[in-house]
Structures are given as structure tokens and as C-alpha cells.
Amino acid sequence: MSALGPGSLARMMELATVLNFETKDILFREGEQAEYFYCVLSGYVRLYRLNRDGREADIRICGSGDTFAESLLAMGESYHYNAQAAENVTIARFDLQKVRLLAEQERDIARAIIQCLSSYLRSTMDCIANDRLQTAPQRVAQYLLDNCQDCMGTVSIRLPFQKSLLAGKLGLAPEALSRAFSSLRRAGVTVRGRMIQINDVNALKQI
């Protein structure tokens, strides 16, 4: 949206419908006919898939400002995953077909869509690389470091969501996340509920 001119921004906002969902509400299910894409305004939305046995695999945790299902603007007629409110959320919903038509008329909207899809592709590639190159403790350590940039010495961080969501965000099973936090104790990381204390940021960087 920030890349759009005033006229295009106004036309996009005319297509937006703001909705509220409560914790665990399902926004859509994999395989359903796709009519909309979404932007999170507040709260968190969990994207996941199910296998035949009912096991769940988190794909992404979307927070404020994140969009999802936007890839369907380019191709696809059905949703490729499930979307669930991880907590009470407010989202903006956009009609896929109307945005497609608008992108044909407004060049800056088409360009913004391409930039959005490119950014998501890069972040997905980074996620895949991290999954293959980093151990579970390294993924957790990197997340903590990303959230205490420019900090020195002892730092306290409060997770913005439950640890089960953090596990999904990092591509870990909840038990793997617990083991990772346990292994980080030697680097001075202490966990109490959502509060995480880092005794030495420099030590954490060495993980």
C-alpha cells in the first residue's frame, strides 16, 4: 500500500472489508474456492496444512502488516492451506477478482503486487535455507537476536505470542522448541512463560 499513489490507494481501500475474528476461528480451509486475500491489521493468523492423519504443519505466522493468499492474484482458484486466528485478530479482506481487474488498469498496483510476491518469495527462500543450514537452537537464537538488535549485556524479551506459535514460526515442533531453549541455557538464556532473559547477547551470538 505504501508504494501506491493517492488515487490507486483510494481505489484499493474501497475494496477493503475490515473483519474481526476470535481466537481459533477458521478464516478459510485448504481446497476451498478462493475469493479473497487478506492483510493482518492486528493480532496473529496461523497458516498451516493437515495430512491425512490430521497432523498439522505450520507454514507461516502472519502478524500486523503481513498479507496472505496474495499469490492467488497471479494464479490459482483454491486456497493452498488453512488459515486460523491464533488470537483475536482484525484483518482487511480484498476481493481477488476485483483487485486483478484494478491491477490491469493501474500500473502502480500491478507493480506493488509484483513487489509483494517477490518479497514473499525471498522470505520463503530464506526460511528454507535456515531450516537446512541452522540447528533448532541456532534458529531460536537468531530470532532472539533479531528482537534485541543493538542491545548489549543483559536483555529481557517478552514474546508477543505463545511459544507454540513461535515454534510454528521457526518451523519447529513444540517439543523441539523446548529442547532448543534448554540447550541455550549455557548461553545464559532463561525462559519463564513468555518472558525470556538473555544474560549475555554476545554469548548468544556465538551459538
Rank of each mutant, 00 (worst) to 15 (best):
Q84I: 02
V89D: 03
S78H: 14
I91R: 04
G76R: 09
K98I: 09
G63N: 08
D95C: 09
E77N: 14
Q105D: 15
S118H: 07
A112R: 03
V99T: 10
T90Y: 02
A74D: 03
A86P: 08
Q115Y: 07
S78F: 10
C116F: 01
T124S: 13
N130R: 10
L73R: 00
N130D: 10
Y120W: 10
V89K: 01
R100W: 05
I113A: 04
I109V: 13
S123I: 10
E106G: 08
R122N: 12
L96W: 00
M125P: 04
A74Q: 07
Q115K: 12
A92E: 14
H80L: 11
A86M: 15
M125F: 10
G63E: 11
A85R: 01
R93E: 07
A110C: 04
N82Q: 01
S118N: 08
R93I: 06
L96V: 04
G76H: 10
C116V: 06
G65D: 09
S78Q: 15
L101C: 12
V89W: 00
L117D: 01
S118F: 09
T124E: 11
Y81D: 04
N88E: 09
A69N: 01
A83T: 02
D126Y: 06
A112Q: 07
R100T: 07
E104I: 11
R100D: 05
I114L: 12
Y120R: 14
Y81A: 07
R107P: 10
Q97W: 01
L121E: 15
A112I: 03
Y120P: 05
A85F: 02
L117K: 05
E106Q: 12
F68G: 04
A92C: 14
A92K: 14
A129S: 12
N82T: 01
I109N: 01
E77D: 14
I113L: 05
N88T: 10
S123A: 12
A103N: 02
Q115T: 08
T67K: 06
G65H: 08
T67E: 08
D95M: 07
G76K: 08
I114N: 02
D95N: 13
A74I: 06
S71I: 03
L102N: 12
S64E: 14
A83R: 00
V99M: 05
C116A: 08
I91M: 10
H80A: 13
R100S: 06
F94W: 05
C127I: 04
Y81Q: 11
M125E: 14
L72F: 05
L121W: 15
S71F: 02
L117V: 04
S118D: 05
C116R: 09
K98P: 13
C116M: 11
E77A: 09
F94G: 06
S118K: 11
S71D: 00
L101H: 13
Y79V: 04
E104S: 14
C127L: 07
D66E: 11
A83P: 02
M75F: 12
S71R: 06
I113V: 06
A129K: 12
I109C: 03
L73Y: 00
M75P: 00
A92F: 07
G76Q: 10
T90G: 11
C116K: 05
H80F: 05
C127A: 12
N82K: 03
T67M: 09
I128G: 00
A86I: 15
G63M: 11
R122P: 03
A129V: 02
R111P: 00
G76A: 09
D126V: 07
